[in-house]
Simulated assay, not measured.
Amino acid sequence: MPVKSLNALLKQLEKRNLENQVKDYALRLEQESKACHRTSNERRTYPAEMSQTSGSYQVSQRKQMDQLPKMKENLVKTVRCNSVNQKTMNAMRRPVKKISRSSRLSKLNL
Protein backbone atom coordinates (compact mmCIF):
# COMPACT_ATOMS: atom_id res chain seq x y z
CA MET A 1 0.00 0.00 0.00
CA PRO A 2 1.24 3.45 -0.74
CA VAL A 3 2.11 5.77 2.09
CA LYS A 4 -0.45 8.39 1.03
CA SER A 5 -3.34 5.90 1.30
CA LEU A 6 -2.06 4.70 4.69
CA ASN A 7 -1.96 8.31 5.91
CA ALA A 8 -5.51 8.90 4.63
CA LEU A 9 -6.70 5.71 6.36
CA LEU A 10 -4.98 6.76 9.57
CA LYS A 11 -6.66 10.18 9.43
CA GLN A 12 -10.06 8.50 8.95
CA LEU A 13 -9.46 6.21 11.90
CA GLU A 14 -8.38 9.11 14.07
CA LYS A 15 -11.43 11.09 12.99
CA ARG A 16 -13.76 8.15 13.83
CA ASN A 17 -12.00 7.65 17.13
CA LEU A 18 -12.41 11.33 17.99
CA GLU A 19 -16.09 11.25 16.91
CA ASN A 20 -16.68 8.21 19.12
CA GLN A 21 -14.98 9.92 22.04
CA VAL A 22 -17.17 13.00 21.55
CA LYS A 23 -20.28 10.78 21.48
CA ASP A 24 -19.14 8.98 24.65
CA TYR A 25 -18.51 12.29 26.41
CA ALA A 26 -21.91 13.61 25.31
CA LEU A 27 -23.63 10.47 26.63
CA ARG A 28 -21.71 10.63 29.90
CA LEU A 29 -22.55 14.32 30.27
CA GLU A 30 -26.25 13.58 29.73
CA GLN A 31 -26.21 10.77 32.31
CA GLU A 32 -24.38 12.90 34.84
CA SER A 33 -26.78 15.78 34.30
CA LYS A 34 -29.76 13.44 34.93
CA ALA A 35 -28.07 12.15 38.08
CA CYS A 36 -27.41 15.71 39.21
CA HIS A 37 -31.09 16.63 38.71
CA ARG A 38 -32.22 13.52 40.64
CA THR A 39 -29.85 14.35 43.46
CA SER A 40 -30.98 17.96 43.67
CA ASN A 41 -34.64 16.84 43.72
CA GLU A 42 -33.90 14.40 46.53
CA ARG A 43 -31.98 17.11 48.37
CA ARG A 44 -35.09 19.30 48.21
CA THR A 45 -37.46 16.57 49.38
CA TYR A 46 -35.41 15.39 52.36
CA PRO A 47 -35.82 18.55 54.46
CA ALA A 48 -39.58 18.41 53.90
CA GLU A 49 -39.68 14.77 54.99
CA MET A 50 -37.46 15.53 57.97
CA SER A 51 -39.70 18.39 59.11
CA GLN A 52 -42.76 16.13 58.82
CA THR A 53 -41.06 13.41 60.81
CA SER A 54 -39.77 15.78 63.46
CA GLY A 55 -43.24 17.32 63.75
CA SER A 56 -44.84 13.94 64.37
CA TYR A 57 -42.03 13.07 66.79
CA GLN A 58 -42.67 16.26 68.74
CA VAL A 59 -46.38 15.46 68.90
CA SER A 60 -45.67 11.98 70.23
CA GLN A 61 -43.23 13.43 72.79
CA ARG A 62 -45.90 15.87 73.97
CA LYS A 63 -48.39 13.03 74.35
CA GLN A 64 -45.88 11.08 76.41
CA MET A 65 -45.15 14.11 78.58
CA ASP A 66 -48.88 14.60 79.12
CA GLN A 67 -49.21 10.97 80.19
CA LEU A 68 -46.36 11.12 82.73
CA PRO A 69 -48.35 12.86 85.51
CA LYS A 70 -51.17 10.34 85.06
CA MET A 71 -48.72 7.45 85.26
CA LYS A 72 -47.14 8.90 88.42
CA GLU A 73 -50.57 9.36 89.97
CA ASN A 74 -51.49 5.76 89.19
CA LEU A 75 -48.18 4.58 90.62
CA VAL A 76 -48.77 6.51 93.85
CA LYS A 77 -52.24 4.97 94.13
CA THR A 78 -50.91 1.44 93.65
CA VAL A 79 -48.11 2.01 96.20
CA ARG A 80 -50.62 3.24 98.78
CA CYS A 81 -52.90 0.32 98.08
CA ASN A 82 -50.02 -2.16 98.30
CA SER A 83 -48.76 -0.75 101.61
CA VAL A 84 -52.24 -1.15 103.17
CA ASN A 85 -52.48 -4.70 101.84
CA GLN A 86 -49.02 -5.55 103.18
CA LYS A 87 -49.93 -4.37 106.67
CA THR A 88 -53.07 -6.49 106.75
CA MET A 89 -51.21 -9.50 105.36
CA ASN A 90 -48.44 -9.12 107.96
CA ALA A 91 -51.03 -8.94 110.75
CA MET A 92 -52.62 -12.15 109.49
CA ARG A 93 -49.34 -14.06 109.39
CA ARG A 94 -48.17 -16.12 112.30
CA PRO A 95 -44.99 -15.15 114.09
CA VAL A 96 -41.88 -16.65 112.59
CA LYS A 97 -40.33 -19.48 114.61
CA LYS A 98 -36.79 -18.83 115.68
CA ILE A 99 -34.38 -21.74 115.69
CA SER A 100 -32.00 -21.71 118.62
CA ARG A 101 -28.36 -22.20 117.85
CA SER A 102 -25.60 -23.11 120.21
CA SER A 103 -22.93 -20.49 120.45
CA ARG A 104 -20.16 -23.06 121.06
CA LEU A 105 -19.04 -25.83 118.81
CA SER A 106 -18.11 -29.23 120.21
CA LYS A 107 -14.44 -30.14 120.27
CA LEU A 108 -13.08 -32.59 117.75
CA ASN A 109 -11.29 -35.71 118.97
CA LEU A 110 -8.14 -36.35 117.08
Rank of each mutant, 00 (worst) to 15 (best):
V76E: 08
R93W: 08
K72L: 08
T78E: 11
N41L: 12
P95Y: 00
N7K: 08
T45G: 04
E19Q: 09
R44H: 05
Q86G: 00
V96Y: 03
E73M: 03
A26Y: 15
Q86M: 01
L6Y: 02
V3D: 15
V96N: 07
L108R: 13
T53W: 05
A91F: 03
R94P: 09
Q67I: 02
S33A: 04
S54C: 06
L108M: 12
Q12I: 07
A26P: 01
Q52T: 03
Q52E: 08
K4N: 01
M71N: 12
M92A: 00
Y25P: 01
P95N: 06
E19M: 01
S51K: 02
E14F: 04
R38K: 11
S5T: 06
L68H: 15
Q86E: 01
L110R: 02
R44E: 11
T39M: 06
L110T: 10
M50T: 12
E30W: 01
R62T: 13
Q52F: 03
S5Y: 04
E49P: 03
K63P: 08
K70D: 03
I99S: 06
Q31R: 08
V79M: 08
R16M: 13
R104G: 04
S51M: 07
K107D: 12
A91E: 06
A8G: 11
P47A: 01
R104L: 03
L75R: 11
K97E: 06
D24A: 09
S103L: 07
K87R: 10
Q58H: 11
K70E: 05
P2T: 15
M89S: 13
T39A: 08
N74E: 12
N17M: 05
M65T: 10
K72Q: 12
Q52C: 05
N90V: 04
D66N: 14
